[in-house]
């Protein structure tokens, strides 16, 4: 599928990582969803996180913008530590964009309003500037003609591309993708992945929870396999696909790659 590999962005040692997680734990009641996750991500890296359902991968990227609160360990995003301090949380949220499995577009607003709302209300940009940037982003995701429609008038793939444009409008330094193609019909997956690949090649720092292994092969710098709240194995796509070390990784890959 996406075989042209250009991975000049491999992590540069010496720079401070843009994301630092140390021994992150998260409980839902008595259930321990994250059991000590540590990860460092350099600026410009593309990380793919995969694993069986219930492995904690979604929970993990949701802790990175505090949609879930972690109870133990440290998370430092672009030099800002995530604590109970609301100002820190808001700063981190301004620097990270998120794309959801279910799109979560605002159904009462047009596509253009969906994209411009946060820049106008949070970044306090003038409407003209916000709309100009929104239109540029719609060109970038390939649907400039849909600006004045409502989300319900678009296909799933178009909605997800609007959601990507909406997150990008805040000009985030990091983009989080939580299973962005899992709710899409098969024929719409490619149009969303193409946008994500273009974004990865433009140098955006991305954390992507996905089972789209073609996407991982094409643009991922590193891959993490999650199971039962732990990182079982990590490595470059080459290492993971050609010589996985752990049996659980082998089993999981054989299950999702055989058909």
């Amino acid at each position: 599928m996406y075989l042209d590999e250009d991975r000049q962005r491999a992590s540069r040692p010496g720079e401070t990582p843009i994301i630092i997680c140390r021994d992150v734990h998260k409980w839902f009641g008595h259930f321990e969803a994250l059991r000590g996750i540590s990860m460092e991500v350099q600026k410009g890296e593309v990380i793919v996180i995969f694993g069986p359902s219930g492995s904690g991968k979604s929970t993990f990227i949701r802790t990175l913008n505090r949609l879930e609160e972690h109870q133990k360990g440290d998370i430092i995003i672009d030099g800002i530590e995530l604590t109970h301090d609301v100002r820190n949380i808001e700063k981190v949220r301004m620097e990270t964009g998120m794309v959801f499995q279910q799109f979560n577009l605002f159904p009462h607003l047009t596509v253009l309003q969906n994209i411009t709302l946060a820049p106008i209300r949070v970044r306090k940009w003038p409407r003209e500037k916000a709309e100009e940037i929104a239109r540029q982003l719609l060109v970038r995701v390939g649907i400039p003609e849909q600006a004045d429609k409502f989300p319900s008038q678009l296909s799933g793939g178009q909605q997800q591309r609007v959601a990507i444009a909406r997150a990008l409008a805040m000009q985030p330094k990091i983009m989080l993708f939580d299973e962005p193609t899992s709710a899409l019909d098969p024929e719409m997956i490619k149009e969303v992945l193409d946008v994500m690949i273009e974004l990865a090649r433009s140098g955006m720092t991305m954390l992507v929870v996905t089972h789209e292994m073609g996407f991982a092969r094409a643009v991922a710098d590193r891959m993490y396999f999650f199971d039962e709240g732990l990182i079982v194995e990590s490595g470059t796509p080459q290492e993971i696909f050609q010589s996985p070390r752990e049996d659980r990784t082998k089993l999981f890959l054989s299950q999702i790659l055989t058909h």
């Binding site: 913008n65 949609l67 808001e90 949220r93 301004m94 990270t96 964009g97 998120m98 959801f100 979560n104 577009l105 605002f106 709302l117 946060a118 209300r121 949070v122 959601a163 909406r166 997150a167 805040m170």
Partner: peptide, 9 residues
């Protein structure tokens, strides 16, 4: 969640 993720209070 979508609103919070965008930085809205």
């Amino acid at each position: 969640e979508a609103a919070y993720a965008l930085g809205l209070g």
